Amino acid sequence: MILQNRIQNPTELDCQLIEQQITSGWDDIVQFSDKLYTDKLLNEINNLCQHYDSHFGVRFYGHTFDCKNLERIPDVKYLSLDCMLEVNKLEVVATKLMHLERFGLGVFEIKETEILGAQNLHKIKYLMLTDTRTKAFNLDHLRNYRNLRTLMVCGHTKNIDAIGDLLKLNQLNLNSVSKVPLHFINKLKELKTLKIILGGRSNIEEIEKNEIEDLEIIWVRGFNSFNNISNFTKLKNLKIEDNIQLKELHFDRNLNDLEDFKLLNCKTFTTLTGIEKLKTLSHLRIYKTAIDFENFVKLPRPDSLKILAFYTTKARIDKIIKERLKSMGYTDGLDRD
């Protein structure tokens, strides 16, 4: 995971610090929450944009933004306009910014529903699209984004099947995307990370055998079954969290690469079976479920398991469980006694 340093509302820039952090592999992002930028400062920022690749970014958020200001940073490679109610002259993004590689867009009252059709955006590698009032925001233009590696979509569903044409996509986050089928994911042969957060659906059974290594299913309304877990044959990390209708999960075959499984705050979840088949599982964390610990601890477990944590959120009981697991040779993976 790339570390980020966010430089908040600066009046001047510490170019030496920025150089040190980017050289060390960090992302440095200069961000403004209000109209505190001057032409002089934007010119200085553009000089840095010329010097650095997309590890140096600029973010404007939280205020009504006039995109005419972007004409001062034509060399920006990483730009985010997000957490905004509205912006003016968004067309400047399409006509003046020819070097973008990473772009975040989150304008609730956006009127330019075809903005993704801008030719200069087609070459970007990272795109974040957050929620808007309109449901007419058109994802069909994504078919032309042949270099896209990371895509985050929040709330947009119009022509969402176009995502299936992003054959180089490595990471996909679907936030608050409800009801629409997920068949398009089966075309993404390079996809390694899938995160499904919020929204509503009962399952993800449309997803066939795949190459996904990291999967998160978090707070999905109505999610109540995960019967196709065995289709995720390359899975390394699995996180299932805040799904209150999910009651059981059965591993019916070995997932040869699964190392880390977190089952968190699924309050009606009672039955977990087949973990003994997970021959590489080293980290299992269970928090706030309806699993009976005494029954669970009797189940067979893989020899690879080193970190095993089980929490009920009742302090006295959790202390007893922790000591019990410790006597069995497990640690909870936390840096405290």
Rank of each mutant, 00 (worst) to 15 (best):
N237V: 03
V92F: 00
L325E: 02
E112Q: 14
S225F: 00
I212K: 11
G155K: 01
P10Q: 10
D53G: 10
N43H: 14
G200D: 10
K234N: 15
E323H: 15
H99L: 12
L139Y: 01
T23V: 06
E114F: 10
F184E: 07
N227D: 14
L105S: 03
N228E: 15
A315N: 14
F310L: 11
S178T: 09
A136C: 06
R133K: 15
S304G: 04
L148V: 01
R301S: 01
K189N: 14
C83L: 15
F269R: 01
E190R: 00
E19M: 04
L172T: 10
N170A: 05
A118C: 09
I196D: 03
N228A: 05
R201F: 12
Y330W: 02
Y145I: 02
E323D: 15
G106C: 10
R336K: 15
R324Y: 12
D303S: 13
F103Y: 11
V220K: 03
Y145A: 01
N170R: 06
K306C: 11
L194H: 07
H99N: 12
K209G: 00
R221D: 14
D165F: 13
R285F: 07
C67H: 05
T270R: 08
L142R: 05
K247R: 10
S202L: 04
E294D: 13
K89P: 03
V180E: 10
G155P: 01
T289I: 07
A94I: 06
I2G: 03
R253A: 10
E241F: 04
N120A: 11
F310T: 09
I185S: 03
C67D: 06
N243C: 12
T313C: 13
A136V: 04
Q4T: 15
L305K: 01
G25T: 08
P181C: 05
N265R: 15
A162S: 14
C266S: 14
Q16V: 00
I7A: 05
T134H: 06
N265F: 12
T280C: 12
Y37F: 10
L308Q: 00
A315W: 11
E241K: 11
G222N: 13
Y78C: 08
K234I: 04
K168M: 11
A309K: 14
I73Y: 00
G222C: 08
S178M: 06
K298L: 07
K322D: 14
L182N: 04
K234V: 04
I2K: 13
D140Q: 13
R221Y: 15
